[in-house]
Design a protein around this nucleic acid. Structure first.
Length: 1139
RNA sequence: GGACGUUUAGCUCAGUUGGUUAGAGCGUUCGGUUCACAUCCGAGAGGUCGCAGGUUCGAAUCCUGCAACGUCCACCA
C-alpha cells in the first residue's frame, strides 16, 4: 500500500493505521529510509498532491470526532443553503470556525464541529423555479403537480448538497461527519414538529387573519426580515373622496383608497375634532359606496400631509393596527380587501377596476379624481418600497389567515414572553443567571440586537411554497353530527387538529386534510443548535414484567392468555415497588405486551401512575415454538448462547433473532415517531427488552437485560439513536455568523433555545463581516465577480487560502479579498516548508522516527544551551506561545497569525537558522522548535503542518497532538539556573547584536559595496558591548560578510560610519568617502536625536508625569533617553573628528 | 428621520482597558548566482493616524462637533 499514497516527492504514507504490526514496522522502515533522503524533498511545497490524502487520513482515523474527557467545546457549522455551491464567504467562515476548533482540539478540549446544510425553503424553490422557467416553463407550480415540483427541487437540493459537502472537505474543515445534519431530514423534522406542537399547546402559535407581507411573484407570504427596502421616486397625491367630504387626505397608493373605511386624525387636532365619530357615505367607484368613519388615533402625525389619514385596513399594516384598536374599543370599522393575491384588483374594487393591476388601477383612479376635480395636489417624493428578497417584486400588504408566533404572550408556567427571553439572554443571562448568557463579539451588535428585540412583531410562520417543513395542522369542515350513542344529541367536529399524523374524526367520516403551507425556513434554522444534538429526547423506560409463575417454576411460556401463568405475589410486589420509582419520571403512556404477565404488570403501573395503557403485539414474548410450556433449561440448550442465537445459528422452531429484531425495531420506529420528546414506559419480556434496548446503537447493548420487575432507561435523540450528545454539548460553546443574518438567525436561535430548552444556544456569538472583492463590492452572481474557492485551492493550496482570509480581519468588519493575498499566503506556506526542509537536513535522521512526546518540554527542563542565540530563540518561542494562545482564546485570528508569521519568518528563518549555519550543535533545539511551530501553525494551516509533522517523524497525528504549554516568564531562566531577569537580558543582548549586524549591512549597502565583497569593519563600543560582540564574533562576521572586525578607540576620519546607541561602526572605504555627505548625514541624525532628547527630557522633568505614569513606562523612557544621549555623544564626536 | 460602522504609508488593512520615536502584507527603490527557500535574501524610501476643538503629564486610541463614504433600521400615510 505504500506506493498508493506515497506521493511523488512529498513523501508520506497514510495507510499505517490499517496495517498489522509487522507490516507497520516494515512500512516505517521503508518510509524512514526514503525520508532520510531529505535532499529529495522538492524545493517548493505542492499542496495539491497531499491535501486530499491528509483529509482522508484525519477522517478515517476518527480525529474529527470528540475525544477524551476534556471540557466540551462544541460548534455548529452555520449550514450553507443548498441553493448552489460554496463561495469564498463560506470558505472564510470555515477558516474562522476550523481555526478555533483545531486550536481547542489541540488544547485538549472534547471538541465537536457538526457539519450540515440548510434546505433554505423559499430560496431553493425560487431558484429551481427560475431554472425551470429558463427551460421554457411558464408557471412551474401550475404545470407540475405538487409531487413533481417537490421532486425537482429535491433532486436539485441533493446535487447541490453533495457538492457543498465535498467543498467543505476541500477547505479542510475538521467536522464530525458521523453527525452530519440537514435542516430538512427526518431528525430535524421531528425537532420542528415538536417545537410547533409545543408552541401551539402553549398558545404561542396561533392562526390569525391579519395583514401579511405578500409577494405576488412568489405567491407567498414573507416575514418582515425577508423584505428589502428600495428607495424609489413616487408621487404623493392629495385629494378629497368627494366634493362635500370635509377632510382632505394624502396618499401614495390611491388605488387602495377603494378599500378605505375610515379617516384617522390625531385626537388633539382641533381642525378635525368636530368630525370625530361621524360617518360619511361616499361613492368613488368601488363595488359598494364606502362608509367612511372619522376616527381619532394617536399614531397620526398632525403635521404630515393634511394631518388626516385615509385608513385602508386591508392594505396597510399601520391601518390594520388602527382597525384592531377600533375593534378593541368597541367602535369597529370595516375591512375591505381590494387587491387579491394575484396582485390584481378584486370585485370589491368595483366594476371599473376589477382585474386591473395595481398600477393600472392607480392611473385610472387618479384620472377619475382629476376629472372630478377632487385632486388637489400631486408631488414627487422619495419613498421606501418593500421588495421580496427572493423574488424581487414589490411586497403587497394583504389580509390573509396565516400561522403566527406570538412574541408577546406570556408563556404558561414561565412568567415571561419570548421577547423577555431574547432580551435576558444577552444582558443579565436567562432568568438572571449569568452562566446562561450569550456574549456577542463585537459588543456593539448587542445593542443593535436589543434594539431589534424591542421592535419585534409576531412572526408569520406559514409560507405558501411547497419546499419546506409541512405545517402539522389538519383541517376538516366543522359540522354538526349526531352523536352515535346519544340519540338526538349533536356534537361539533373539531375543525383544526395539530398533529404529525393524520387524525381521524371521532364524529364523522370526513377526512382531515393537511395544511398545504410550509414553515418559514428560519423555523428550522432557529433550532439548529439543538436539533443537531438530538432534541427532542425521547425517554423510554423498558420495564420487565414482575415475577410470574413461569419464572418461579422454571418453565417457559409465549401464550397470550395462559391462565396458569399470572404474576406471583412477589411479582406484584415488585411492580408496586418499581411504580414508586417510575412515578417521578413523568411518563405519559404505557405500552405493553398483551401477554398475561406483562398485561398485569402494565395494569398495576397504569393504575399507580394514572397514565393511559396501550397494548402492542410486537412486544410479545419471543416465539418459543415447540418448546413452549417446556423447561427453561431445555430451551436454553436448544437455543444456545445469545451470541449463537444472534448470529442466526439457532434453528428449530424458535423465533429467530432477525425476526425479533424486525418487530422490535418496527415498534421502536413507531414509538419514537409518535412520542418524540416524551417519556414512555414499555412493558415487555427479557429478550424483547434486550433487543429493543439495543435499538439505535450497536449490539453490545444487548447485554442489558433487566431482572423481573426491573427496568432500563434509554434516551433517544431525534435521529432515533441513543443520545448523550445533548447533555454533553449543549449549550454549544461558540457560534459565528455574518452580521447580515444577525436578526434573521441569531435572534431566532436564541428564541428557540430559550423556549425549548430553557437555556442559551451558545455562549459566544462571533459576528464577522462580509467578504468583498478588491473594489469593495459584494461577491454576487449578478456582478460576475464570484471566485470559486476550490479553484483558488487548486492553484495555491488550502492553507494559503486560509491564512489569506484570516490575516487582516477584525470581528464585525468587512474585508476584501484578492488573489495577491493568497499568493502571499502561498509564499509563506512555502517558507515554512523550506524552514522545515532545512531543519530536517540538520537534525539527525536516525532520531526522526523515534521522536516522542513534547520536545519543547525536554529542552526547557534540561538542555545545556550554549550560545546567546539559543537562549534568545527559546525565550522568544515561549513569549510567542503565550501570546498566540491568548490571542486565539480571544478570537484574535489576525493578530495571532501575524505574530506567528513574524516569529517564523523573522526571528526563526532570518536569524536563528542563519546562525545555525554558523554555530553547531543545535539539533535538539531545532527539532523542538520545528515541532512547536507546527503545532502553533496547525489551526491556521492544517495540511502543510500535518504533512511536515509526518515527514519529520513526530508521533501520531498533529491534529490531535498537544498544544505547547504556556510557561511562566521565568521558567526558562530557572531551567538554566540563571537570574530572574535572564529573559530580558537575553532579548536585549540579542537585539544589540542584531541591530549591529543590520547597521553593518546598511553601511555597506549605502556605500555601494557589493554584498559578496569581504570587507573590514572597525567598531567603537563600550566594554560590555564589545564583550558581547567578541563572544559572537563569528556570527557578526558571517552575517555582515566582514573579513575582519576590529575594536578601536575611534574611527579613522575617512571611513564611513553609522551610530547606534553608544556604538559607532566604521567601514573602510579606503578614502573613497564623501566627507560632505557624511557630515550632512551626521548633522541630520544629530538634529533628530537632539529633538528626541529635548522632548523626552521635558517629559521626564514633568512632575505630574513622574508621579502619574506607570513605572514600566518610565523605565522604558529612561532607558531610551540614556541610549539617545550616548548616541548623541558618539555622533558629535564623530562630527568633530571630521571637521 | 434615527442608529451603527469606516476614515492610519501608493493599495488592502492590523493597532483590546490612553503610555517607547505608529505596524504588517502587497506595491515601490537600491543591491544580491550566500550550498532551506528567487514562492528567495539584504538594505531603504514612504504616514502632522479625515478635519476642528476638548479632557489628560501623555491621544491613532477617550469626549464634543463637522465632513466624506458605507450599512442597517423606521408604519410618516
Amino acid at each position: 500500500m505504500l506506493g498508493a499514497h506515497c506521493l511523488a516527492g512529498n513523501l508520506i504514507c497514510w495507510d499505517e493505521m490499517d496495517l498489522e504490526l509487522p507490516q507497520l514496522l516494515r512500512t516505517r522502515k521503508i518510509q524512514h529510509e526514503i525520508m532520510s533522503a531529505y535532499d529529495d524533498l522538492p524545493k517548493a511545497y505542492d499542496a495539491s498532491s497531499v491535501e486530499d490524502a491528509i483529509y482522508e487520513m484525519w477522517e478515517r482515523s476518527g480525529a474529527f470526532q470528540p475525544q477524551g474527557d476534556g471540557k466540551p467545546f462544541c460548534v455548529m457549522m452555520p449550514p450553507p443553503n443548498v441553493t448552489g455551491v460554496l463561495h469564498l464567504g463560506h470558505a472564510f467562515e470555515d477558516a474562522i470556525m476550523d481555526t478555533i476548533v483545531r486550536f481547542q482540539r489541540l488544547r485538549g478540549r472534547k471538541t465537536l464541529l457538526v457539519p450540515g446544510t440548510d434546505h433554505a425553503a423559499i430560496a431553493t424553490q425560487a431558484k429551481v423555479e427560475k431554472i425551470l422557467m429558463a427551460e421554457g416553463m411558464q408557471n412551474p407550480r401550475k404545470e407540475l403537480s405538487r409531487e413533481q415540483l417537490h421532486e425537482k427541487i429535491r433532486i436539485f437540493a441533493e446535487t447541490s448538497k453533495s457538492t457543498i459537502l465535498s467543498q467543505i472537505r476541500k477547505v479542510g474543515t475538521s467536522c464530525d461527519w458521523t453527525r452530519l445534519a440537514y435542516t430538512f431530514d427526518d431528525a430535524r423534522s421531528r425537532t420542528v414538529n415538536e417545537l410547533f406542537i409545543r408552541m401551539h399547546a402553549d398558545g404561542l402559535i396561533y392562526r390569525g387573519y391579519r395583514v401579511v407581507n405578500w409577494s405576488v411573484k412568489g405567491q407567498s407570504t414573507c416575514s418582515d426580515d425577508e423584505i428589502v427596502y428600495v428607495e424609489r421616486q413616487s408621487k404623493l397625491y392629495t385629494f378629497k373622496y368627494s366634493k362635500d367630504f370635509p377632510i382632505t387626505i394624502a396618499t401614495t397608493r390611491p388605488e387602495t383608497k377603494l378599500g378605505d373605511t375610515a379617516v384617522a386624525v390625531h385626537p388633539a387636532d382641533k381642525r378635525f375634532s368636530a368630525f370625530i365619530g361621524k360617518t360619511f357615505t361616499i361613492d368613488i367607484g368601488a363595488r359598494k359606496p364606502l362608509e367612511i368613519k372619522i376616527i381619532a388615533d394617536e399614531e397620526v402625525d398632525p403635521s404630515f400631509g393634511t394631518g388626516a389619514l385615509g385608513v385602508t385596513p386591508a392594505h396597510s399594516a399601520v391601518d390594520f393596527a388602527m382597525y384592531e384598536r377600533q375593534k378593541a374599543v368597541g367602535d369597529p370599522i370595516d375591512i375591505i380587501p381590494v387587491i387579491g393575491t394575484d396582485g390584481r384588483m378584486t370585485e370589491e374594487a368595483g366594476i371599473a377596476y376589477v382585474g386591473l393591476s395595481v398600477e393600472e388601477a392607480r392611473e385610472k383612479f387618479v384620472g377619475w379624481l382629476r376629472s372630478q376635480g377632487l385632486l388637489e395636489k400631486e408631488e414627487d417624493i422619495m419613498q421606501n418600497v418593500g421588495t421580496s428578497d427572493r423574488y424581487g417584486d414589490v411586497i403587497e400588504a394583504i389580509p390573509l389567515t396565516q400561522w403566527w408566533l406570538d412574541v408577546n404572550k406570556e408563556i404558561p408556567g414561565r412568567g415571561k414572553n419570548l421577547r423577555d427571553f431574547m432580551r435576558e439572554a444577552v444582558t443579565t443571562g436567562l432568568d438572571g443567571d449569568s452562566v446562561k448568557k450569550v456574549t456577542i463579539t463585537p459588543d456593539r451588535f448587542t445593542k443593535l440586537y436589543l434594539d431589534r428585540v424591542e421592535h419585534l412583531h409576531d412572526w408569520c410562520l406559514s409560507r405558501q411554497i411547497l419546499w419546506g417543513h409541512r405545517i402539522p395542522a389538519w383541517y376538516h369542515e366543522t359540522k354538526n353530527v349526531f352523536k352515535d350513542d346519544h340519540e338526538g344529541e349533536k356534537v361539533l367536529c373539531q375543525a383544526i387538529i395539530i398533529s404529525i399524523e393524520k387524525p381521524i374524526c371521532k364524529h364523522c367520516g370526513a377526512e382531515y386534510i393537511q395544511d398545504p403551507d410550509t414553515l418559514d425556513t428560519w423555523f428550522s434554522s432557529g433550532s439548529w443548535p439543538f436539533s443537531t444534538l438530538g432534541w427532542p429526547l425521547t425517554r423510554v423506560l423498558f420495564v420487565r414484567h414482575g415475577q410470574a409463575h413461569s419464572n418461579l417454576e422454571g418453565f417457559i411460556d409465549d401464550r397470550i392468555d395462559n391462565p396458569k401463568n399470572p404474576l406471583t405475589d412477589t411479582g406484584r410486589d415488585q411492580i408496586v415497588e418499581v411504580a414508586e420509582h417510575l412515578v417521578k419520571e413523568g411518563a405519559v403512556r404505557i405500552i405493553a405486551s398483551p401477554v398475561l404477565r406483562t398485561k398485569q404488570t402494565a395494569e398495576i403501573l397504569a393504575e399507580k401512575l394514572k397514565i393511559p395503557l396501550l397494548f402492542d403485539d410486537r412486544l410479545r414474548e419471543i416465539g418459543l415454538g415447540k418448546y413452549d410450556g417446556g423447561s427453561e433449561e431445555v430451551f436454553g440448550v436448544a437455543r444456545g448462547s445469545t451470541k449463537e442465537w444472534i448470529s442466526g445459528k439457532t434453528v428449530d422452531t424458535i423465533e429467530s433473532y432477525k425476526n425479533l429484531k424486525t418487530r422490535a425495531d418496527g415498534f421502536m420506529d413507531d414509538l419514537l415517531k409518535r412520542y418524540a420528546g416524551k417519556t414512555i414506559i414499555v412493558v415487555s419480556h427479557g429478550d424483547v427488552i434486550s433487543t429493543m434496548g439495543a435499538y439505535g446503537t450497536d449490539e453490545s447493548w444487548l447485554a442489558s437485560y433487566p431482572k423481573n420487575g426491573g427496568y432500563l432507561l434509554r434516551t433517544y435523540g431525534n435521529d432515533g439513536r441513543v443520545n448523550t450528545d445533548l447533555q454533553t454539548f449543549f449549550p454549544t460553546t461558540w457560534m459565528q455568523m455574518g452580521y447580515e443574518i444577525l436578526y434573521l438567525w441569531l435572534m431566532r436561535m436564541i428564541l428557540m433555545s430559550t423556549y425549548a430548552l430553557d437555556d442559551i444556544p451558545f455562549g459566544d456569538a462571533y459576528i464577522h463581516g462580509i467578504l468583498r472583492d478588491k473594489e469593495g463590492k459584494k461577491f454576487s452572481k449578478s456582478s460576475g465577480n464570484g471566485i470559486d474557492p476550490i479553484k483558488v485551492i487548486d492553484q495555491y493550496g488550502c492553507d494559503a487560502l486560509r491564512v489569506s482570509l484570516l490575516l487582516g480581519v477584525s470581528p464585525g468588519n468587512d474585508s476584501r479579498y484578492y488573489t495577491e493575498k493568497t499568493e502571499s499566503g502561498r509564499n509563506f506556506v512555502n517558507k515554512l516548508w523550506n524552514i522545515s526542509r532545512f531543519i530536517l537536513s540538520i537534525i539527525p535522521t536516525e532520531g526522526a522516527g523515534s521522536s516522542q512526546g513534547d520536545l519543547l518540554a525536554d529542552v526547557r527542563s534540561g538542555i545545556e544551551t550554549k550560545s546567546l542565540a539559543d537562549q534568545w530563540i527559546m525565550v522568544r518561542i515561549d513569549v510567542v506561545i503565550a501570546s498566540v494562545t491568548k490571542k486565539l482564546e480571544g478570537y484574535e485570528f489576525s493578530s495571532a497569525s501575524e505574530e506567528l508569521r513574524d516569529f517564523t519568518w523573522g526571528d526563526l528563518a532570518d536569524w536563528y537558522l542563519e546562525i545555525a549555519k554558523i554555530e553547531q550543535g543545535k539539533e535538539v533545539i531545532l527539532r523542538s522548535i520545528l515541532q512547536t511551530i507546527l503545532k502553533l501553525w496547525h489551526p491556521f494551516m492544517p495540511f502543510v503542518t500535518e504533512h511536515i509533522w509526518k515527514i519529520a517523524g513526530f508521533d501520531g497525528q498533529l491534529i490531535i497532538a498537544e498544544w505547547p504549554n504556556v510557561v511562566a516568564k521565568s521558567s526558562y531562566s530557572v531551567a538554566f539556573g540563571m537570574p530572574e531577569d535572564t529573559e530580558d537580558m537575553t532579548l536585549r543582548s540579542f537585539d544589540i547584536l542584531r541591530l549591529l549586524i543590520t547597521d553593518l549591512r546598511r553601511l555597506r549597502a549605502e556605500n555601494g559595496v557589493e554584498s559578496t565583497k569581504q570587507i573590514l569593519f572597525a567598531i567603537v563600543a563600550p566594554d560590555d558591548i564589545q564583550k558581547l560582540l567578541e563572544e559572537n564574533m563569528e556570527i557578526v562576521k558571517t552575517l555582515a560578510r566582514a573579513s575582519s572586525v576590529k575594536f578601536v578607540g575611534s574611527i579613522v576620519d575617512d571611513w564611513a560610519t553609522t551610530v547606534s546607541g553608544a556604538t559607532t561602526v566604521g567601514l573602510d572605504l579606503s578614502g573613497a568617502i564623501d566627507i560632505k555627505k557624511e557630515k550632512a548625514k551626521l548633522s541630520k541624525e544629530i538634529a533628530e536625536t537632539e529633538e528626541y532628547i529635548v522632548t523626552t527630557g521635558l517629559k521626564m522633568k514633568n512632575v505630574e508625569f513622574m508621579t502619574k505614569a506607570p513605572t514600566r513606562v518610565k523605565e522604558t523612557m529612561e532607558k531610551k533617553y540614556g541610549e539617545a544621549n550616548m548616541k548623541l555623544q558618539a555622533l558629535k564626536e564623530r562630527l568633530t573628528k571630521l571637521e
